[in-house]
């Protein structure tokens, strides 16, 4: 697998949301609007890339039986660093995403990539893998957020295109499952043609 494929596989072939169905907690919880989904995606992209880099660097020094706690410490530290920096330098973004940032620690995509990829590959490939999967995650969260915001609130990225409230169900948790289910159908239909 060449470097370019390492990056692009995260977008469609191994898309974390629509193919692997990993990290469902932040996916369903944060995508109430397009901007929230995108912010969560970008924050995850950052943490995923950084933790992949660090873990691929230290992988040879970690005994097999304590690798999971070691990875979790690395990931949690990255998230805290991100949280403090956002609070200090982009307080406006922190306002909207603040409550979701600690959730990144428990996002199983990050631990999943650390275990499945970064602990077996070099620094450069791991960084690319993190970027690719992160971009795929950001894209799918933005799509899901946009759909839910359109149906539930009648707006896209905060711009209203109909008056009134929309179908409230789609902003609530059940709507997240319904929207994700139909998006999965569409995604599978489209990718089936590609194969």
């Amino acid at each position: 697998m060449n470097k370019w494929q390492t990056f692009t596989k995260g977008l469609i072939k191994e898309n974390p949301t629509f193919v692997l169905l990993l990290g469902m907690c932040p996916t369903l919880g944060t995508t109430t609007s397009a901007i929230n989904g995108m912010g969560m995606g970008v924050a995850t992209l950052f943490v995923l890339t950084m933790s992949n880099i660090v873990i691929s660097l230290i992988k040879n020094y970690i005994p097999g039986k304590v690798r999971i706690p070691a990875f979790i410490v690395v990931i949690a530290s990255m998230v805290t660093v991100l949280q403090l920096c956002m609070q200090a330098y982009v307080p406006a973004l922190y306002e909207t995403l603040g409550v979701f940032i600690p959730l990144i620690v428990v996002n199983c995509i990050i631990l999943g990539r650390a275990e499945a990829f970064a602990s077996k590959n070099g620094v450069f490939s791991s960084a690319l893998d993190g970027l690719g999967i992160g971009c795929g995650f950001t894209l799918s969260l933005t799509v899901l957020g946009t759909v839910r915001e359109m149906l539930g609130n009648g707006s896209i990225f905060g711009y209203k295109f109909i008056a009134g409230d929309g179908i409230l169900l789609f902003v609530l948790a059940p709507g997240a499952f319904i929207a994700l289910g139909y998006l999965l159908v569409i995604f599978n239909k489209l990718t089936a043609k590609m194969k």
Binding site: N60, I62, P63, G64, K65, V66, V73
Partner: peptide, 16 residues
């Protein structure tokens, strides 16, 4: 890498 009590404790200590 082989796991032994010593290197597990040491690695986790250094990482934390």
């Amino acid at each position: 890498m082989e796991s032994s009590l010593k290197n597990m404790v040491l690695t986790l200590f250094i990482i934390t």
